[in-house]
Simulated scan of single mutants.
Amino acid sequence: MDIVLTRTYFSDGTNGKIECEGRFVCYTIELPWLDNAKQISCIPEGKYLLRRRYSPKFQWHVEVADVANRSSILLHPANNAQKELKGCIAPVTKVSGAGLGLQSRQAFLKVKCLVYSALERNETVLLIVQS
């Protein structure tokens, strides 16, 4: 299964939308593009494997695997990219500014259910990041 994240870049943050099989799922917020610098930039455009991950902080969430020169890139709830993200992607219900969104937990649960359902069917889940 392919999940497509289409981005729009701004100096203060990156906004996007996630679609699966041509259907809108949610919006996203990320840090601005700063040449893939660790903890201050969004990740490069490309194709990435998604997998389940657990941490005490975020509980069960989604990991974006094999990002060049980066580790622990996650999909997890956040409403302010500058304050709450270190290179990760936050699904949001509504975008409220560059790198800002609302009702992230609801949007994250939609994405998590979509990804986990596919993984339970033994499908490979790819995130395609594009502009």
Results as ranks from 00 to 15, higher is better:
Met1Arg: 04
Asn80Phe: 03
Gly97Leu: 08
Tyr54His: 14
Leu74Lys: 03
Leu49Asp: 00
Tyr9Ile: 15
Phe10Ala: 14
Ser131Gln: 12
Gly46Cys: 06
Arg51Pro: 00
Ile43Thr: 08
Glu21Phe: 15
Tyr9Gln: 04
Ser55Val: 05
Gly87Ala: 06
Tyr116Asp: 15
Arg51His: 05
Val62Lys: 04
Arg121Val: 01
Ser41Trp: 00
Gly16Pro: 07
Lys17Val: 12
Ile43Pro: 03
Ala78Trp: 13
Ser55Leu: 11
Asn69Leu: 12
Trp60Lys: 14
Thr6His: 02
Asp66Val: 07
Asn15Gly: 08
Asn15Trp: 12
Thr124Val: 13
Gly46Tyr: 06
Gly46Ala: 05
Thr124Tyr: 02
Val67Thr: 12
Val111Met: 12
Ser72Thr: 08
Asp12Ala: 15
Leu119Thr: 05
Asp35Ser: 11
Ala118Cys: 09
Tyr54Thr: 06
Ala68Ser: 15
Gly101Ser: 07
Lys83Leu: 12
Arg121Tyr: 03
Met1Asp: 10
Leu102Ala: 08
Glu120Asn: 14
Ile128Lys: 06
Leu102His: 11
Ser131Ile: 03
Glu123Ala: 04
Lys94Glu: 14
Gly87Ile: 00
Leu85Ser: 01
Ile89Asn: 01
Pro44Asp: 09
Ile3Met: 03
Leu5Pro: 00
Leu75Ile: 14
Val92Gln: 03
Trp33Val: 10
Asn79Leu: 08
Tyr9Trp: 09
Leu126Trp: 07
Pro44Cys: 07
Cys88Asn: 06
Arg52Val: 05
Phe24Leu: 09
Glu30Thr: 04
Ser55Phe: 00
Lys110Leu: 15
Ser104Pro: 01
Pro56Trp: 04
Leu50Glu: 05
Arg53Cys: 11
Leu127Val: 01
Pro32Gln: 09
Gln106His: 10
Gln106Phe: 13
Ser71Met: 11
Ser55Tyr: 14
Gly46Trp: 11
Gln82Ile: 11
Arg7Val: 12
Val67Tyr: 08
Leu31Cys: 10
Tyr48Trp: 02
Asp66Leu: 12
Cys20Thr: 15
Glu84Gly: 00
Leu49Ser: 05
Glu123Lys: 11
Gly16Glu: 11
Ala37Pro: 00
Trp33Ile: 06
Ile40Arg: 09
Arg70Val: 01
Pro77Lys: 12
Lys112Met: 13
Thr6Asn: 13
Leu50Cys: 08
Val129Gln: 00
Ala65Lys: 15
Lys38Ser: 10
Ala81Glu: 06
Ile18Gln: 02
Lys17Ile: 13
Leu109Asn: 13
Lys112Gln: 14
Lys17Phe: 11
Ile40Gln: 08
Cys88Trp: 01
Gly16Gln: 00
Thr6Asp: 02
Ala78Cys: 10
Arg105Gln: 07
Asn69Arg: 14
Leu127Lys: 04
Gln82Val: 09
Ile43Met: 07
Thr93Ala: 04
Lys110Thr: 12
Ile128Glu: 08
Gly13Leu: 01
Val129Thr: 06
Ala90Tyr: 12
Gln82Tyr: 05
Glu120Ser: 10
Val111Ser: 00
Val92Trp: 02
Thr6Cys: 07
His61Phe: 09
Ile128Pro: 01
Ile43Glu: 02
Ala81Tyr: 05
Leu75Thr: 05
Ile18Gly: 02
Val25Ser: 08
Val95Ala: 09
Val67Ser: 02
